[in-house]
Design a protein around this nucleic acid. Structure first.
Lengths: 133, 133
DNA sequence: TCTTATATAGTAATTATTATTATTTAATAA
DNA sequence: TTATTAAATAATAATAATTACTATATAAGA
């Protein structure tokens, strides 16, 4: 993998933020620094970085989201607003070993996604209910 | 939700198979029984059934896949051939409670996806290595 | 500095999914 | 059993996300 300014800026952006941007988000942001970067370049690099294990990717709703933190960690998805957040909790012990015991496949990773309603959304809901009283 | 022959056949198909078909797979299959069902109907019903909690849905690669088993269970995705399989193992205990302790959000579900190389693919790989000796 | 394989910008094409609309149908009540 | 009507359908158009293509530019080693 040869270096390019484009790829460097994309990776730096992902390292800088704690959100989980889509390709469109990354494009929009990096475009500020490099006005004539193209969408294809963003996609190509995101996929490349993911293949090389330097970042993570996952699908939510329609679009793929990217995470600059390549270490295994868990995510939370708000069913209401669609927001994705990291969950800072201890990894479940031995979970890969347990799964391997249950199958004949070679398992080397996993992805854990929690779903629910985030605090912002549940507060908004409460506020609206009160307002209707 | 009103009954329709289309929806019944879609749900029956999902209950019949242990695979995790995409909307296109479902369309192809149900079309055998109901030649002029339309793609839109398949999508609408799959999303509807998912909203009602009668089936599950998840994204893999580009497409959404559907699972006629609505009970929580874990999946395995082969990185090589893309196959998705159920993993029959005990659910991790208290995992939602543990996640809730780590955040301020209301968590009510989760999705656990294991990744690796399935037995078929790893055997094929081995076979090719031997052949190259 | 020269060479060359790799990356890029710009654009077109593809794929999965959703929206629209006129028509049909399931389920309820007369 | 038939009439009514809200919901579902087929057919089609539209959209959104992603990938493919190609001529040009560039990083990195000889």
């Amino acid at each position: 993998m040869r270096n390019s300014n484009q790829r460097t800026l994309i990776l730096e952006y992902l390292h800088r933020v704690k959100t989980h941007p889509t390709a469109a988000d990354v494009y929009e942001e990096v475009q500020q620094l490099l006005p004539d970067i193209s969408f294809g370049t963003v996609y190509r690099n995101l996929n490349r970085l993911n293949d090389e294990g330097l970042i993570q990717a996952f699908k939510v709703g329609r679009a793929k989201h990217f995470d600059g933190n390549a270490d295994n960690h868990y995510h939370f998805l708000c069913r209401q607003c669609g927001k994705v957040e990291d969950i800072e909790m201890a990894l479940v012990e031995d979970i890969i070993a347990r799964a391997e015991d249950a199958t004949d496949h070679e398992i080397d990773g996993y992805e854990l996604f929690f779903t629910g309603v985030c605090q912002d959304c549940s507060q908004t809901d409460k506020g609206e209910e009160d307002g209707n009283k």
